[in-house]
Computed example of a mutant assay.
Amino acid sequence: MLGRLAMAGAVAAVMALGPHTALAQGTGPLVFAAASLKNALDNANAAFVAGGGAKATVTYAASSALAKQIEAGAPADVFISADDDWMDYLAGKGLVQPATRRDLLGNDLVLVAPADAKTTIEIKPGFALDQALDAAQKGGRLAVGDPAAVPAGKYAKAALQKLGAWDKVQDRLAPAENVRAALALVARGEAPLGIVYKTDAVAEPGVRIVATFPADSHAPILYPIALAKEATNAQARAFLDFLAGPKARPLFEAQGFTVLSAK
């Protein structure tokens, strides 16, 4: 219930961006970006401005919420998803410009615990994640992005299914509206363990990485970027190209992303 309320709040915030938001904020593009990109993209946005570009107005939320809002007519010039599925969703409805789409970044999936926790576990086929939850906190829950919609949660579910751990924990989830919300549950000690992206774990001093999921336990974690069909801002393409270019590479790498598109 809390997850749905938080999602509704994110949706309301997105829809509050009216058609004239770009003018109110300057001349930069309107960007809808996955929540896990916040630290890196804020830094890239600052670098874009330092190089003479106009500051982008960025809305961060779950990729699912952002895609649904673009579908509903919310203004956006650039969309950056945390998986191919939600970009494909918009592409299937003709709501992105296919010639501008490219894979921007890659990421890893990790198991995290509160920074002061002593939890240790090896992620391998048949690993006892349920026992690790109980050892850390009797009846404790696993914080994840909602597997029904949030990319990080979908990757987590796929990895746990591949490793044979899903059946024992699927009723012990603390599903969150986006990956940063799942991370916060662990950082605050409200969940003893969580599954998030490596970049989120690196950005949050309140957690530590317990283990990294094998790359072959889930589909590659990709962040595709594209211009929205209705993109009108004159700097939208320049911003997309900047993010996909060599000047943004170190900013993304500093946050733990794998850069896929920089020349």
Rank of each mutant, 00 (worst) to 15 (best):
A72K: 10
A50N: 14
L23S: 10
P98G: 06
A46H: 08
A44M: 08
T21Y: 11
A34T: 01
N43V: 15
A33S: 12
T59N: 12
A50F: 13
W86G: 06
W86F: 09
A44D: 00
D88H: 13
T59L: 14
G28F: 14
S63D: 09
D84M: 15
G52N: 10
F79K: 04
A22M: 11
N45Q: 13
S81P: 08
Y89K: 12
A56Q: 05
L95N: 02
V31A: 07
V49H: 10
D88M: 12
N45S: 15
G73V: 07
A35Q: 05
S64G: 02
S63N: 12
A82T: 02
H20N: 10
N39D: 07
A47E: 09
T100Y: 04
A91E: 05
M87E: 02
V96W: 00
L37Q: 04
Y89P: 07
Y89M: 06
G28T: 10
P29A: 05
L30D: 01
Q25S: 09
V31F: 06
P29M: 02
N45T: 14
A62P: 04
N43F: 12
D88P: 10
G51W: 09
G28I: 12
Q69R: 13
G53W: 15
K55W: 12
I70Y: 13
G106L: 05
G26L: 07
P19I: 05
L41A: 06
W86S: 08
A54G: 10
K38G: 06
V96M: 00
D42N: 13
T59M: 14
G94A: 02
A99Y: 06
A67F: 11
A34S: 13
L90N: 09
T59P: 01
A22T: 11
S36H: 01
T57W: 11
K93G: 05
Y89E: 11
A99H: 09
L37P: 04
A44L: 08
K38H: 06
A54V: 14
P29Y: 02
K55H: 11
G106M: 01
G28N: 12
G73Y: 11
Q25L: 12
L95K: 03
T100M: 03
Y60W: 08
D83H: 03
A40C: 07
Y89S: 09
L105S: 02
D85C: 05
F32Y: 15
L105F: 10
A76P: 04
N43H: 14
A50P: 07
D103F: 12
A82I: 03
D103S: 14
L30V: 15
A91D: 03
R101M: 05
P19S: 04
G92C: 09
F48W: 03
T21V: 15
L90M: 07
